[in-house]
Design a protein around this nucleic acid. Sequence first.
DNA 1: GTCTATAGGCAGATAGAC
DNA 2: GTCTATCTGCCTATAGAC
Lengths: 200, 200
Amino acid sequence: MVVAADQKTAGTPARILDIAERLVQIRGFNGFSYADVAAELQITTAALHYHFTGKPQLGLALIDRYAVRFGAALGDLDARCDSAAGRLRGYVGLYRAVLLDGRMCLCGMLAAEYHTLPGGMRDSVLRFFDENEQWLESVLTQGAADHSLRFSGSAREAARLILASLEGALLIARSFEDTGRFESAATSLLAGLIAPAPAD
Amino acid sequence: MVVAADQKTAGTPARILDIAERLVQIRGFNGFSYADVAAELQITTAALHYHFTGKPQLGLALIDRYAVRFGAALGDLDARCDSAAGRLRGYVGLYRAVLLDGRMCLCGMLAAEYHTLPGGMRDSVLRFFDENEQWLESVLTQGAADHSLRFSGSAREAARLILASLEGALLIARSFEDTGRFESAATSLLAGLIAPAPAD
DNA sequence: GTCTATAGGCAGATAGAC
DNA sequence: GTCTATCTGCCTATAGAC
């Protein structure tokens, strides 16, 4: 999700995080090793341990950076979109970008592996979902006010549906390598939420 | 998902599958080992290899059995529900049962690990999702005809939203150990699909 | 900061006895 | 069918030189 990482001018810790992030999003936290990252960076695993004491610490740094980057993207949407409907479309776009990169949402992936994760990582994963839900809830509340969105039930319920739909659509569409499956779900989701004509 | 497994009268292969299935649904295919299954069954890993040559073969057997059981549950819904809306509610109930057991959908879990899976398992995972999508599409088409369901866009698009929503809701709610998050998403989903008053 | 070398553990898997 | 014994490989991690 979110703005591109991978700048070749970054320092070693950032490059480690870039590589590890991609590996986790594609193979999972239990599906990559220090050796994988080291090989790609062309250093040894011992050097990796200098920057990140252990895999749990690396994992924690991964989520923290991802959450910050994601929060910034949500801030951008707040600033750049005029309507709640526009923000929601932008939010869907964040997930689309992840899929086009052949990845799963970092925290969606970690949610699958939740019960094998170090304790510290678990808390950070939950916090990520909570922050998303809260942002969506506020967008939905705005949308009800500016009449760009409509939904039955509470804003919180609708927020949870949006979050679940996009994580699930990413999960499935990525396996099929079929962006069409993502677009179908997203279209259907937005069709039920975005008001027909007036505002946008 | 689906009807309970775990009958203590079953033969060794079935008991292996029961234990492995639960472990995969909770910890993932890369998060459990032959040793875990062997310990729980109180046999050795060598005995396990007698019944299932290797982990890929065990994984394949796991998905196949799961898909058969799931297909039977869908057949039950077809037989026991009078309306498309009823079938859809029953479908949501299949996912709810998985969550109440503290598990993830087997194939949803494997979808997260997709890119680390043996080739044969991948195909079976995709087939599972295809079968679900097709069943949902036919239910939605029935629902449009008997007026128990309403949706904008095609039945296929709506089917993909339903599948993605429920897999995603399961993924997230299970991490929080909060059935409320699942119910919120499910309620919001069904509210948008089930027609107000008449049929059911 | 990065290296070589190595420890210690656990993984999946096999041979051969019973 | 299940066992003991064992192999090979990969994993995370550390000590100590440069």
